[in-house]
Simulated assay, not measured.
Amino acid sequence: MELRHVRSFLAIADELHFGRAAARLHLAQPSLSQHLRQLERSVGVELVSRNSREVRLTPAGVVFRELAGDIVERVQRAEEAARAAAAGRAGTIRVGYNFPAGRRVLPGTLARFDARHREVDVVMAEMRTGPQLAALQDGRLDVAMVYGEPASNGLRSRRLLRVPLVAVVGLEHRWAGRDGVPFEELAGESCILFHRAQSSAMYDAIFSAARASGIRLNVAEEVDDPGATAIIAAVKPLVGFASALRGGFAQAAPGGPGTTTVRLYDPVPLLDLYAVWNADPGPLVESFLRCLPDANDRLRA
């Protein structure tokens, strides 16, 4: 059974006149009649009865028309959806992000994207940099928002934001209440850190600042979950690290973990936030990338 034969039958069923149905489909009448004969052979029953006075549907044709119309409508919707997806107007895009991206980049980006592409679903997942890049490379994400510019030749990136890091300490820590401390004072503290694979750019920024200060960090615990880092810092005399945005948000949240943030300087550890995508992104991802903040709008968090 061919779809064109079904469409020819539906035109006959609507018009109940072979000449009008053929004109509607821009077909010669003999071709229309041939389509009907081929369809009836495929189905195995007579669908249309005609004589010199009238054209009418058989009982089988009435039933077939009801279901065939639904099939053709579904196929038309599928064709339209496929064209929309190919043009970047429909489908699903999967976006990974970290905390600063979620606070400073995504709200405006999603508002612009939704205004232009209401038929596109955006699925979001908050993750550290390492898991985001792994998900991007194995196809679980379409766009990642991560710290640091990736070195892979198969990825493209664009810098969005510059983010300073701060120290996270409990309310009883001796630094609590201080506006800021020079980085070299970390020489006398025990720290909470994470495994480098979780966020190599953030990890390297911390150790680069330590080298610039001429100190060695004493890493007492390694915790990969940012929320757990704050909880541990709240109950132990340890120093954790967070972006200024995450640290300030956690400090202000009611019922937070009982921590405060302290500015680090001399040097200030800085991170660049990048949008990252695969080298051959497709129209849907390209549409999303066009909604990211313009290069002239890059801000320091």
Rank of each mutant, 00 (worst) to 15 (best):
E221I: 06
R158C: 07
T260D: 02
L16S: 09
A23S: 14
R246N: 08
R24W: 02
R196W: 03
F194Q: 14
T129W: 07
L284D: 05
R300G: 12
R56N: 06
A68R: 03
V276I: 04
A60W: 06
P283N: 06
R158P: 00
L171F: 06
R298F: 09
P257R: 04
P269F: 03
E184K: 12
N218I: 07
A84P: 01
D142V: 02
L271W: 10
A115H: 03
F9A: 10
A151G: 08
S33W: 13
R24K: 15
A253E: 13
P283L: 06
Q251I: 00
R83T: 02
V181S: 09
V55D: 06
E222H: 13
M127F: 11
G61S: 03
V166D: 10
P131V: 02
V143T: 03
E119A: 15
N51L: 08
R77H: 08
P269E: 05
T92W: 05
S208I: 05
L299C: 12
L32R: 05
W277D: 05
R103A: 15
H17G: 13
S42I: 09
R116T: 08
G154D: 13
G19F: 02
G102F: 01
P269N: 04
F194P: 03
G108K: 01
S8R: 09
S190C: 11
R65T: 14
L106P: 01
A21Q: 04
P257D: 02
L136F: 06
N278E: 13
A228M: 13
G61C: 03
H17Y: 12
F99H: 12
L270W: 15
V168K: 04
A22S: 07
M202A: 15
G255M: 03
S33F: 13
E126C: 13
A151D: 11
Y265D: 05
T260K: 01
G170I: 00
A13T: 10
R298E: 12
L141A: 06
L171D: 11
C191R: 07
G96D: 03
A187R: 14
V123T: 11
F194G: 10
L10K: 08
A101E: 00
R211W: 08
F194R: 13
R50G: 07
G248T: 01
V169Q: 00
G177Q: 04
A87S: 12
R89Y: 08
L193D: 11
E15C: 12
A252Q: 14
N51Q: 04
